[in-house]
Nucleic acid binder design. Sequence first.
DNA 1: GATGAATGAGCATTCATTCAT
DNA 2: TATGAATGAATGCTCATTCAT
Lengths: 199, 199, 199, 199
Amino acid sequence: MRRADPQLHQQRRLQILEGAERCFRSKGFHQASMQDIANESGVSMGLLYRYFANKEAIVVSFADSDSAELVSLLAEFAASSSPLELWPGILRRMLKEASEPDYVRITTEVFAEALRNPKLFESLVQSDDTVRRALIDAIKAQQSAGRMVAQLDPIVAADILMGMIDGVGLRACLVRQFKPRAIERHIQDLVRPWFVAPA
Amino acid sequence: MRRADPQLHQQRRLQILEGAERCFRSKGFHQASMQDIANESGVSMGLLYRYFANKEAIVVSFADSDSAELVSLLAEFAASSSPLELWPGILRRMLKEASEPDYVRITTEVFAEALRNPKLFESLVQSDDTVRRALIDAIKAQQSAGRMVAQLDPIVAADILMGMIDGVGLRACLVRQFKPRAIERHIQDLVRPWFVAPA
Amino acid sequence: MRRADPQLHQQRRLQILEGAERCFRSKGFHQASMQDIANESGVSMGLLYRYFANKEAIVVSFADSDSAELVSLLAEFAASSSPLELWPGILRRMLKEASEPDYVRITTEVFAEALRNPKLFESLVQSDDTVRRALIDAIKAQQSAGRMVAQLDPIVAADILMGMIDGVGLRACLVRQFKPRAIERHIQDLVRPWFVAPA
Amino acid sequence: MRRADPQLHQQRRLQILEGAERCFRSKGFHQASMQDIANESGVSMGLLYRYFANKEAIVVSFADSDSAELVSLLAEFAASSSPLELWPGILRRMLKEASEPDYVRITTEVFAEALRNPKLFESLVQSDDTVRRALIDAIKAQQSAGRMVAQLDPIVAADILMGMIDGVGLRACLVRQFKPRAIERHIQDLVRPWFVAPA
DNA sequence: GATGAATGAGCATTCATTCAT
DNA sequence: TATGAATGAATGCTCATTCAT
């Protein structure tokens, strides 16, 4: 479809999504009204509906989380000849993001909704799969290079790692006396056996 | 003269909570109306409000999850002279529950809401802490008995384990080609180093 | 109708009406629920309905205010040979009651409701008329005795006096810087011309 | 592009207030539902709430009664060199309004509610005070000019007069055989002593 | 006489969505 | 493109009243 001004269109879309994210974080999907979103985004109700057919359409946009940075990091890891040097940084980065209260809030919100909304679920699976695939491929690459242990099932490793990081992230928001540093160190230790010790 | 009947009270409460759980699972907390819950429970609106002051009071009841069984299992583990024999069963039990779609659905729903409702959050923390404490105490007991490695920080271990199990449970509902058996086996392997090898 | 125990019946009725009055004063007719009234009176819902057919029946009971004391005072005044001595006491008593916040609250409540409920209106008119008649008769008696001026229309005087007293009572609850003593004195002066000066 | 239209806004507001007044008069504040008001005003529920945040906001608007006309009449009286000529008209006007059944109905309704709602009470006091001040100031002005008796306490006189008028207005709706003309004449006579007889 | 569990229509209020301008 | 007035069904919650015990 031809747009009079594609750039304006893109900017407005983003503007709305940012406003919506603020609303969703502080109130949740179903508590945030379209009026809230319009106000927070600085657009009128009418315009809001010009850019998103309905509330669901906004929600679905949130599943497409931007994981490009992490994916490229994993690609770098896949190609690296010294993966053990990159690994701690990757793990730290994932843990840090996963423990961010804002991230946990929006993620939990999206996940809860996705369990009920197939369209959203599909988007979420897609998005998750992008990272998962990158992680699996990276492990496979390193196994081929003989730098990660061959017996390790890449799929199993990926799901455990991603699960552990998300799960620990939740707990960071839940428990008192949470020890982020010690936990990070311990997770590093736990997965050390996945790697072949350098000669 | 008619007297208040505590048994009836208890039964009605349960009846409502069960109806509410079905509603929350299928529609989500904010999508399930009190009328839905009343219908699903087979009671009238008026009666519903006789048992729960408001909608929040119902969710709060869900946060007080019954973890008595798991706690007693962990107590048994704490006192056992051969913890490595009990361990696989405990881990399997936790993983199985955490991967149950119904469990994930209601848990995610409650957690998402708890991130916005302090009263609910408090209940959830309490409930989580019951298990967490039992796990920490169990680890400490086995460390004292010299059957788990002394360097292990019990708090860190508990949070990693509980996080990993919940996180993996979520993924069980999310990813295609999820391998529950292989994952369980691998987690068992991951935490094996926490135990002192029997002579 | 025969009652098993008429005394108990009467006591319960009173007990309920007293509870109801407290409720009506603090919340108003339509804000006070039957449950509130039952709780406040210390009886059960079922018993409440045994004594009053419905909420309206309770409300109607309130119109029948007990003005026996005032009526007998006015009868005394009617028969007195020195009415100017009794008069200030009567006026003070009426003003004092009419300025009582509790009295104003319940009176206003009843009056507002009576303007919409013919049955209640009738009761209120009856009740008001008891005092009004007593006042008119008293004035007439004193006119016959030559102690109040003959030109005074007793009906007009009664309505002005009763209106003034109720109206001033309302203002006592409404305005800041209300001067009860000075007002009482001034009203005494205003109606002095109704009396024939003693020789 | 459509711009907000203040005229439309004002018209809608009025339209709603008129519908609400009809409802409050015929059913009372708490008996009139917002749906009733919307229907009576010819607007939808949604629009109703666009103009008034809640039901209370509507009543509060009623407390801000428009007494501009009476106030300007009293200002005229204050400045007049022959107040005794203006006086009967003012008194008649006040009495007439106060005896209007519609006026009594809405006034009683609002007053009853105000005794329980502090915000409304404040509005009512404000509104009442506007007239009260004007009356007090008028009396003071005429006292300074030597046309009303100096001993009269303006505050006392104002409260008695306003109370009497409101109280008599209530009775006009309550008693049978109410004599408006004779009552008006008698009140005129009662307050005649407040004025200094013209030379 | 006395209790309190049970009902369900009704209430104030909100909100996704539409549409005339 | 952009606005904001307008809709009305739906929601959480209350309450007068009934009735089995």
